[in-house]
């Protein structure tokens, strides 16, 4: 073996020693980080367990007690199940409508906000930071906050949930949309500008065709999330299937067959839209016509 020419540089053993030292140090860091992480998890679990009404160990035994009760009652009254499914279907439709409208409204708001906060496209370039902060705040507010306040003002029903979810969706989609916008080609926009197109025309004809598939894909994903959100908000009083579920559950034994029907409906709806949107999104990202 011939020695490679390494005159003037550090000797190979030195490099090797340095490298090993570096590796050891990195390993030590990772080890410390891992220990801290494990300690945090353990301590956190301990605290959560202490502050919980029932302990983890005791609860683990009866984790199947409630599902068993519900399933038992549902099986007992299996003949009533189709009737219940039909009875609660309108509530499910309401939940899905809440999600659909809020996705639609939120996507429109997100579209405008994202265009206003993307460099190169913004109507008022000086106001970009302002619109970005607006989106941050919209994104940060949990739906339940707006929903509860609006239920107090507007009364229970689907509208508070719709507004609350749309508000959050506007912020969340706005951020994703503006990331898409940043990758859009500016040449069509410049071309349109050179022939005197207005801002709205530039955006509609120059940007939209480029970004629409990605927008649609994000909006579909959001729709999926919003179905879950609207079911949860129903539970705190905003109508739809969540509200029916709460009634059935708090009634306790005797209405568990209804609860089972609602569980089934909700589960079915979530899985259905999940599959639908993931299939459609696949098609959008892989291009039209792909199987």
């Amino acid at each position: 073996m011939t020695e490679l020419s390494n005159a003037g540089g550090p000797a190979v053993p030195d490099i090797r020693a340095d490298y090993m030292a570096l590796t050891r140090r990195r390993r030590a860091y990772s080890g410390v980080l891992l220990i801290v992480f494990v300690a945090l998890m353990a301590a956190g679990f301990q605290v959560a367990d202490d502050r919980n009404a029932g302990g983890f160990r005791d609860g683990l035994h009866n984790i199947f007690a409630f599902p068993a009760q519900v399933i038992g009652e549902a099986v007992e009254k299996a003949a009533l199940l189709p009737g219940h499914l039909v009875k609660f279907f309108p509530a499910l439709v309401e939940t899905i409508n809440i999600a659909a409208v809020s996705t639609l409204v939120g996507a429109l708001a997100g579209l405008v906000l994202s265009l206003l906060s993307t460099r190169g496209l913004a109507r008022f370039p000086r106001l970009i930071p302002l619109f970005r902060r607006i989106m941050d705040v919209m994104r940060a507010i949990p739906e339940i906050v707006i929903a509860l306040v609006l239920i107090f003002v507007l009364g229970g029903g689907p509208v508070p949930a719709m507004i609350a979810i749309a508000f959050h969706t506007g912020g969340a989609l706005g951020k994703l949309f503006s990331e898409v916008n940043e990758n859009a080609d500016l040449k069509p926009v410049e071309g349109l500008e050179s022939v005197g197109a207005s801002w709205i025309q530039r955006m509609g004809l120059g940007v939209m065709p480029q970004v629409a598939p990605n927008y649609l894909s994000y909006a579909l994903l959001r729709f999926e999330i919003n179905i879950r959100a609207s079911a949860i908000l129903g539970f705190v009083g905003a109508g739809g299937i969540g509200y029916e579920l709460k009634n059935a559950i708090s009634w306790g034994q005797g209405k568990f067959d209804e609860a089972a029907a609602i569980f089934l409906l909700l589960f079915g709806a979530i899985v259905f839209f999940d599959q639908l949107s993931s299939q459609y999104r696949d098609r959008l990202t892989r291009g039209r016509g792909a199987p």
Partner: peptide, 26 residues
Amino acid sequence: FDFVRGVDALIWTIVLARAFGPGPLT
């Protein structure tokens, strides 16, 4: 995976609250 995701946090919360009672662990 599909099942636990499809059941959704709302239903899990209800089911688990029966077993563990209210609190952060649930």
